[in-house]
Simulated scan of single mutants.
Amino acid sequence: MSSHPVREVATVTDAVLGPALATDPASPLFTFYDDASDERTELSTLTAMNWAAKTANFLRDEIGVAPGDHVAVDLPEHWQTFTILLGAWWAGAEVVLGADPSASVAFCTRDRLDAHAGIDEVVVAPLDPFALPVGDLPIGVTDFGSGVRVHGDQFAPIVGGPAALDGRTVAEVVGAAADRATADGITAGARVLSTCRWDGVDGLIRGVLAAPVAGASLVHVSHADAAVMAGRADTEKATVSLS
């Protein structure tokens, strides 16, 4: 149980977007670097919200995801992963990391298709800066770039299901994120530079949720090049660093 009082919200996504929407929705919420590909993508709160809405509309209207259904997210750290998580929670789904045979839909990379062979609905994320379509996918597999982005960029959030992440309720997840933010010294208005992995529940709470839930913005770096990290902290005006 969280040691901090948490504002009651219907979904985890509401807790992530709420602080920034109440202050400056046009400012950066999530900035993504990949030092292996030289990608830098910056999402304002409004842009992240639009992508989350597209994903939530896709899940509700095309897949028929209802509150409480499982959505498997088997993706590395990326801005697309961030918005897919927000969309799944907004649709009321419970996010399960990795493969889940009970999932209504799985989001994965092309090289992870075999891990989700038993799932009726699979979406491949391109993980490129512009969400360009992935070509030559097997029949029945949806391309994120073309299948999700065509949906509406506004969504009316609904009540979440009984769990939001790996069996934890919305309140438990948001409370854990608030506690993690306090432990890491993250406060409202902070700029958080992170190289945390997202491949476990605790890593996701620390590396994705803690900053925005506390009203801070997040800069995530994948495949971090140590030679440029110190300079990047200055460039991005980071006030907190996580690894």
Rank of each mutant, 00 (worst) to 15 (best):
S3Y: 04
P5K: 12
P5D: 13
V6M: 04
R7N: 12
A10N: 14
T11M: 00
D14Q: 15
G18L: 09
G18M: 07
G18P: 10
P19L: 02
L21H: 06
L21D: 14
A22L: 14
D24Y: 00
S27V: 03
P28E: 05
L29A: 06
F30T: 00
F30D: 01
T31Q: 03
Y33R: 14
D34P: 01
A36E: 11
D38C: 00
E39G: 00
R40N: 11
L46Y: 11
T47F: 02
N50P: 00
W51L: 13
A56W: 01
A56Q: 03
A56V: 01
A56D: 03
N57G: 09
L59M: 04
L59N: 01
L59V: 03
I63E: 10
A66G: 02
V71M: 09
D74V: 08
E77Q: 08
T83G: 02
L86G: 00
L86E: 06
W89L: 07
W89D: 04
W89K: 08
G92N: 04
E94T: 00
V95S: 00
V96M: 08
D100A: 11
D100Q: 07
S104R: 15
A106E: 11
A106Y: 08
C108D: 05
C108V: 14
R110A: 15
R110S: 15
D111G: 04
H116G: 11
H116F: 07
H116I: 07
A117F: 12
G118W: 03
D120L: 12
D120C: 03
D128T: 14
F130A: 11
F130C: 01
A131W: 08
P133T: 06
V134I: 03
G135S: 15
D136M: 12
L137I: 02
G140F: 07
G147K: 08
V148N: 10
V148T: 06
H151R: 13
D153N: 14
D153H: 13
D153K: 12
F155L: 10
P157Y: 01
P157N: 02
V159C: 02
P162D: 08
A163S: 13
G167K: 10
V170N: 00
A171I: 06
E172Y: 10
V173A: 02
A178L: 13
D179V: 01
T182I: 14
A183C: 03
D184N: 15
G185V: 12
G185A: 13
A188C: 11
G189L: 11
R191K: 13
L193F: 13
L193T: 10
C196S: 11
W198T: 09
G203S: 03
V208G: 02
V213G: 04
A216L: 06
H220N: 13
V221G: 00
A227W: 09
V228H: 09
V228W: 05
A233L: 11
T235I: 06
E236I: 08
K237V: 01
K237T: 00
T239D: 10
T239I: 10
S241Q: 10
S243L: 06
S243C: 04
S243P: 00
